[in-house]
Amino acid sequence: MTVTAARPTRHVEHCMGTVFSFAVADEGDWTEAIADAVGWLHQVDATFSTYRPDSAVSRLRRGEDVHDPLVDEVLSLCERYERETDGAFSAHLPGGLDPSGLVKGWAVEWASGILREHGSANHAVSGGGDMQLAGAAAPGRPWRVGIADPFDPTRVLTTIEGTDLAVATSGTAERGAHLVEPGTGEPARALASVTVTGPSLAWVDVAATAAFVKGQGALDWLRAQRLGGIVVDLQGTVTRTG
């Protein structure tokens, strides 16, 4: 074996009500880089949490004037993605403005960017099972991601291998039946889970949500977006774009 990479540097952080996981495959001391990325995640939580009354988003929801470049960026991305998903994704929910569906994936993608700025070309950052993968897991070995069976999380249904890739999965098990059909407000129920792959996690994560809501039309829509997808329907049948 010519593999010389040390064991990846790993870190787990609790934030935004979920678990963020870092794996840096490059050799060296990544303590400071990971601390920067973790600080960023907590900054995002403090800004966008709908559970914190003092967050910028909570103040916006109360009709207060908010001037925050991060908020501006997220809200403009939300509007763009709402158009690109024909409204299947929206930050305008019945309970008011809530960009949470975008924020986690967007924050993870930026966290990966922070590690890159610190000089890491090979790392994985996951936020609650949605991840941005940079470079490879080891020289000559791409990152390998297990996709959990939505009907039995003790099983890995399939694996995805790739370099420089974002992967996100949406489904009812994620946070209960939290994804609703925009037209009816009813929970989306045509599929068990949708996994989407592409270059940018902010978009891939939103696209997974949108494809799940679109139900039967998910794969065709993902193909039209030039994204990869694995769809599991309620019978457990697995279909994919490629």
């Binding site: 390998r144 890995v156 098990a173």
Partner: peptide, 17 residues
Amino acid sequence: SIDMVSGATYTSQGYIG
């Protein structure tokens, strides 16, 4: 050998953590 797991299962995230 798997580096990361993607899944829409909240409990799995607790397990991972």
